[in-house]
């Protein structure tokens, strides 16, 4: 395994098309520098984020997973993010069952204009996960 100091975690971020994906775009447009840890998977609505996708990310080797969407009340599909919130609570409980630290799973509502928020969210989570080290579920040899 790479040296802890050099080690860059791999974080899977699920972003909804309308808000948080746009927030990540806005972060880019504003050149808000971030660690190269996040890989974005775009879905139309955060309500499409299946716990199955999140488990798969962890099983494949994710050091953290970010679930992101529109602010409550701003969902492009009326109330998809409320469903996300319910499913997220379920995921939070399962983190413990899976033997993972709760700090490896995060939920954030980020609007398309909140580039700075997206960047600081990525910075914060990356720093936290770097302290935790690689995920205990990460298969050996995987990066």
């Amino acid at each position: 395994m790479a040296d802890r100091k050099e080690w860059e975690p791999k974080i899977v971020a699920f972003c909804c098309n309308w808000c948080s994906y746009g927030g990540a775009d806005t972060a880019g447009m504003g050149r808000f520098q971030q660690p190269a840890s996040v890989r974005v998977v775009r879905v139309m609505c955060s309500g499409r984020i299946d716990p199955l996708h999140v488990f798969n990310a962890f099983l494949e080797g994710a050091d953290a997973v970010l679930v992101t969407g529109c602010h409550l009340g701003d969902c492009h599909y009326v109330n998809g993010n409320y469903k996300t919130e319910v499913r997220y609570q379920f995921l939070e409980e399962l983190m413990i069952e899976m033997g993972l630290e709760p700090e490896r799973l995060h939920l954030s509502w980020i609007s398309a204009s909140e580039g700075e928020k997206f960047a600081s969210f990525v910075n914060k989570v990356t720093t936290e996960v770097k302290k935790l080290g690689p995920s205990p579920l990460k298969p050996e040899g995987v990066n």
Partner: peptide, 20 residues
């Protein structure tokens, strides 16, 4: 959901990672 089927999304999720 067409264009965002489980197989399509999982193809992305699984290929975030590589064996070193």
């Amino acid at each position: 959901q067409s264009h965002f089927k489980n197989d399509q999304l999982l193809a992305q999720v699984r290929n975030v990672f590589t064996f070193e």
